[in-house]
Design a protein around this nucleic acid. Sequence first.
DNA 1: CCGACCTGTGAAAATCGTGTAAACGCAGGC
DNA 2: GCCTGCGTTTACACGATTTTCACAGGTCGG
Lengths: 101, 101
Amino acid sequence: MLAGMGRLEIKPSEHAALVDGRPLSLTVRELQLLVTLSEHPQRIMTRDELFAQVWGGRPRSDDRSVDVYVSRLRAKLGEAIPEAELIHTHNGIGYRFSPDD
Amino acid sequence: MLAGMGRLEIKPSEHAALVDGRPLSLTVRELQLLVTLSEHPQRIMTRDELFAQVWGGRPRSDDRSVDVYVSRLRAKLGEAIPEAELIHTHNGIGYRFSPDD
DNA sequence: CCGACCTGTGAAAATCGTGTAAACGCAGGC
DNA sequence: GCCTGCGTTTACACGATTTTCACAGGTCGG
C-alpha cells in the first residue's frame, strides 16, 4: 500500500502542494525544493543538483542550505502525512524523493 | 468539523453575503473580492488574479489594494464569524479561501 | 451644501522568510 | 570511551512582505 503518496499532489503552476486537496503552507523555497525533488522520483539527487535547481549556481563548499530546507520540508510534510517517509537521505551523496514506500 | 462555513452563503446575484441568514454590510469592492475568492476555494490566488477579477487590468507594481481589502474583509467576516479563519495568506504569492478549516 | 460612506494611497507597525552559524545526535574507527 | 565526520535541528539577525491605520478625494442622497 502506498503510504501517503497519492494523497500528495504537487502543482508548481499553482504555487501549491496539496495533501488531500488542501494546500500545505510552504514557503517559496520549500516548494521549489519539493518540486525539484518530486520531478525526479526515486532518483538520488546531490546537494549540488538541488542547490542549482532551487537557488541557482553552486553552493559554497560548507553551505548547509539544502539540508536545512530538507529538514523544514520534512517537518511540514510529516505533519500533514505522518505515516509517509517521502524524502530519504543518502549518506555522503544527497537526497531521494520516494512517493511510494 | 467545519468551523464557520456553512454559516456563510454568498449570493453574487443578489449582491449579498449572508451569515446565518443575515446579510453582512460589505461594500461593493469587498463583496467582489469575497465572491472572487470563494469561487475558487482551496486555490491560492495571486494578487494579480484577484486584482484582475475585482478591479480589472493589472495592478501597479507597488499596489496594495488587494491587501487592504483583504484586511477589511477579514475584519467584517471576523466580527460575524469569530471562530473561522476563512482567508489564508500565502506569503510572496497571494491569498486562499478555505471554507472548511 | 452637508453628512455619510466608499475608495485608493502612503507609511508605520507587525509578522514572516531566509540564510548562516552553532548546537545536537549518531554511527564507525581507533 | 573518545574522537571524527556527517546529517539534523534549533537559534538568530536581517530583510522582505503583510497588516493595519489614517487621511484625502470622490460620490451620492437628503
